[in-house]
């Protein structure tokens, strides 16, 4: 397994390099750069050029790329060309809210979706199945921002139970931390929940029709034992794959959630940087996202061996 892991990590290096090159080129293609935005409407081309020089944007692209990538290799992701803060500091300020939302969303979604999917499969064709699948369709179809607004209206404006917006760090107390996470996690988690519930139901249905399940029933095993130990474990790999894809999709969903709930996370940092053409921040964040994707995929692949003894690395 160690050899396989190292091989996969080595394969990630060219992937990251390609991501870095594509990101860098995309950012520099547009006709608007930060210098012209800062210069204002009265600026002459000469003045815009002076600002561009002061920002280091006048150097040849290749030179800029090599210089930036060299810094990245030494662990320095550069400095924002607008607010002059190191990219890693900006990411550091915002990693906790995003990780908190992502983590709790996964826990919330998996904790509810897997039992729902199993229950639906076990009661396939009954009203329980129909109800769960109808709820899943509704949850999957509603945009995250709409769910967010509805939750804010009900729980913040009407009931005044939870805050509308913002984030409180864990260091400031568990209570405020959790209160600020409830609505973002639920609004983001519903889509994720629906996706996993549907996938769990489908794979469980397939497994429950296998001969060995019939044998287990014939042997007189209890329903819980059959479902959890025999069926769910064998249905786990597709579910884990879906969860993995979902985590990747979460990063996109986090952008919307962070905007609706005014949470200072990585998603908003990325969007703000793109709007303002803050190249070092965009490049740094996307590179970190890519690394996260690679590691998540690797973790999912390695986890297959836990559920299926036939898989060996």
């Amino acid at each position: 397994m160690l050899a396989y892991t190292l091989k996969r990590l080595a394969a990630a290096v060219p992937v990251m390099l390609i991501v870095a090159i594509i990101t860098f080129m995309l950012m520099h293609i547009g006709s608007v750069d930060p210098a012209s935005r800062i210069a204002g409407e009265l600026a002459t081309p000469e003045e815009v050029e002076k600002i561009r020089i002061a920002m280091g944007l006048d150097r040849p692209l290749l030179h800029q790329f090599v210089s930036w990538f060299g810094q990245v290799l030494s662990g320095d992701f550069g400095t924002s060309i607008l607010n002059r803060m190191p990219v890693l500091d900006l990411v550091g300020q915002r990693i906790e809210p995003t990780l908190s939302i992502a983590l709790f969303t996964i826990v919330f979604a998996v904790a509810l979706a897997v039992p729902m999917g199993v229950l639906a499969a076990w009661n396939a064709g009954t009203w329980v199945d129909h109800l769960i699948m109808a709820l899943a369709v509704i949850a999957f179809s509603m945009p995250v921002f709409l769910v967010g607004y509805l939750l804010i209206y009900q729980f913040s404006i009407e009931l005044r139970l939870l805050p509308v917006q913002g984030y409180k760090p864990l260091a400031g107390g568990v209570g405020p931390y959790l209160r600020h996470l409830v609505l973002p996690v639920v609004s983001l988690g519903l889509v994720f929940l629906a996706l996993i519930a549907r996938m769990t139901r489908a794979t469980m249905l397939e497994v429950l029709n296998q001969d060995y399940i019939r044998t287990a029933r014939a042997k007189g095993l209890g329903n819980t034992r059959i479902l959890v130990l025999h069926a769910l474990k064998n249905a786990a790999n597709p579910i884990v794959t879906t969860i993995g894809f979902g985590i990747a999709a979460l990063i996109g969903g986090v952008v919307v959630t962070e905007t609706v709930f005014a949470i200072p996370g990585i998603g908003r940092l990325t969007i703000d940087a793109v709007i303002r053409r803050d190249f070092p921040v965009i490049q740094g964040v996307i590179l970190l996202f890519s690394a996260a994707y690679v590691l998540i995929n690797l973790a999912i692949d390695l986890s297959y061996a836990l559920f299926d003894p036939r898989i060996r690395y």
């Binding site: 804010i152 913040s156 005044r160 509308v164 917006q165 913002g166 609706v260 709930f261 005014a262 908003r268």
Partner: peptide, 18 residues
């Protein structure tokens, strides 16, 4: 100064006293 890109969130936060 709390930056809120979404005006609806800002209005809700004011209504909620945040």
């Amino acid at each position: 100064w709390t930056v809120m890109p979404d005006g609806a969130t800002a209005v809700s936060a004011l209504a909620n006293g945040e």
